[in-house]
């Protein structure tokens, strides 16, 4: 995935079954963000792989004051990249079993 300066990782082990999963997001390189970032640490949240949209979570982070509106796309993309990777891994496991 592209280095967006925003790191998103699994906050729990992926059992490959449940749709809602805990993720942890933090800013690794604030120079890649357009707005001034208030260093508040790592943000942990749950994300539903089947029903949720990464950009919506990014917008909620903006509304909660973690990021500025100008960076909502980069945050959304960072989450989307990680979510895609999780889904891709799950697909591989499923097709490996079949």
């Amino acid at each position: 995935a592209e280095d967006t300066g925003v790191r998103v990782e699994l906050a729990e082990e992926d059992d490959g079954k449940k749709s809602s999963i805990a993720l942890r997001l933090w800013v690794e390189d604030q120079k890649k963000l357009k707005g001034k970032y208030k260093d508040s640490g790592a943000i942990e949240f749950t994300f539903d792989l089947e029903t949720e949209v990464p950009e919506t979570v990014a917008q909620e982070m903006v509304e909660s004051g973690f990021f500025l509106e100008i960076d909502v796309k980069i945050v959304g993309k960072s989450i989307r990249d990680r979510v895609s990777l999780i889904k891709w891994r799950r697909q591989r496991i499923v097709s490996g079993h079949n």
């Binding site: 690794e28 640490g41 790592a42 943000i43 942990e44 949240f45 749950t46 979570v57 909620e60 982070m61």
Partner: peptide, 27 residues
């Protein structure tokens, strides 16, 4: 303080905790 902070937004819960220094880049 290293205690986690909880922020609610539109029904979602964000838990904020310090990032381990080993995970930070360029700092």
């Amino acid at each position: 303080s290293s205690a986690a902070q909880v922020v609610h937004s539109a029904g979602r819960r964000f838990i904020v905790s310090p990032v381990p220094e080993s995970r930070l880049k360029d700092q």
